[in-house]
Design a protein around this nucleic acid. Sequence first.
DNA 1: GTCTATACTAGGATAGAC
DNA 2: GTCTATCCTAGTATAGAC
Lengths: 181, 181
Amino acid sequence: MSRQTIVPELLELFRKFGYDGVTIARISEATGLGKASLYHHFPQGKEQMAREVLSFVDQAVNDYFVAPLRAAGSPKQRLTNMAKVVEEFYDCGNKSCLIEGLTLGDANELFQELIGASVESWLQALADLGVEAGLPKKIARERAENIVIAIQGALVVSRALGNRGPFRRIIRDIPSMLLGN
Amino acid sequence: MSRQTIVPELLELFRKFGYDGVTIARISEATGLGKASLYHHFPQGKEQMAREVLSFVDQAVNDYFVAPLRAAGSPKQRLTNMAKVVEEFYDCGNKSCLIEGLTLGDANELFQELIGASVESWLQALADLGVEAGLPKKIARERAENIVIAIQGALVVSRALGNRGPFRRIIRDIPSMLLGN
DNA sequence: GTCTATACTAGGATAGAC
DNA sequence: GTCTATCCTAGTATAGAC
């Protein structure tokens, strides 16, 4: 079993259970690999696994969230494309965000820098698109933040309510949150 | 040591570390009580502690978030009052939300219903205020959701970036998010 | 590269004295 | 109501065979 198949499995575990909630036993069960095999692939154990997941996610953010924003097409169309990918990534709001699980408690010190960098590059791409669409720099940045805030918050609220409605609505409203109505 | 002093301590622990990250040893250290004393107060252990924290929080939501929204004064003033309390509760964005820590992994099944009820009563109070201010019911509900979404999302993003700016900005914008500009 | 077996630590929980 | 001592399970990690 190769790293390319293990890391996505790890991603699902970390975002479902958070850093502390993920145990080697659970990983073993989910991947079908014995504990010793896991330590063969990841000698530094859980912390290394989380780091490789974050690096995989950073790649995914750039390939799937940022790239569409910097591609050809109208600003509105590019935002719509990103929104669609975001919706899939979070499975319509059923899956929670890695950020939550990897910034609680002690994990925060370990991973905050990595997470912050990924979020920042996403924000940057959104803000750049806003500027390209004619917004002042400061406004573009604020609206970019508002979009990421809304996505993360909608995940939290949807989970709390047991109702995906808020998440789906936010996804739908992403283009107008940057460009206005 | 009485329950009134223990439960707020527990709240801080659960929202900092999440359900899985809180250990009896940590609780013992934070409260100064031995493990056996903790089980004397909470015979069902950690699960009971979390339930009592949630009940305490539900009370706090009603007393500190909902009550100002239903008090006398202009809608704008009431929203500003709530925003101020919210800012304090989250210590300007330094403290994370209980929702995150108690909805990850297995904890979700245990506590989702309780958490959902608290969130719902907060949403209801915001939406009622919107209606009172002249908004159609559906719009009021959406904007109420947007406010809670923005608060929760801002906590996540601020933590990820290591920068309280987004949280403080959202707090400032709460009144206009419901009432418009 | 994967397994079984095992060592060791940390976490949850309780018994019984004071 | 709090403590010390203890039990048991779960969790992390490693050794060594195949």
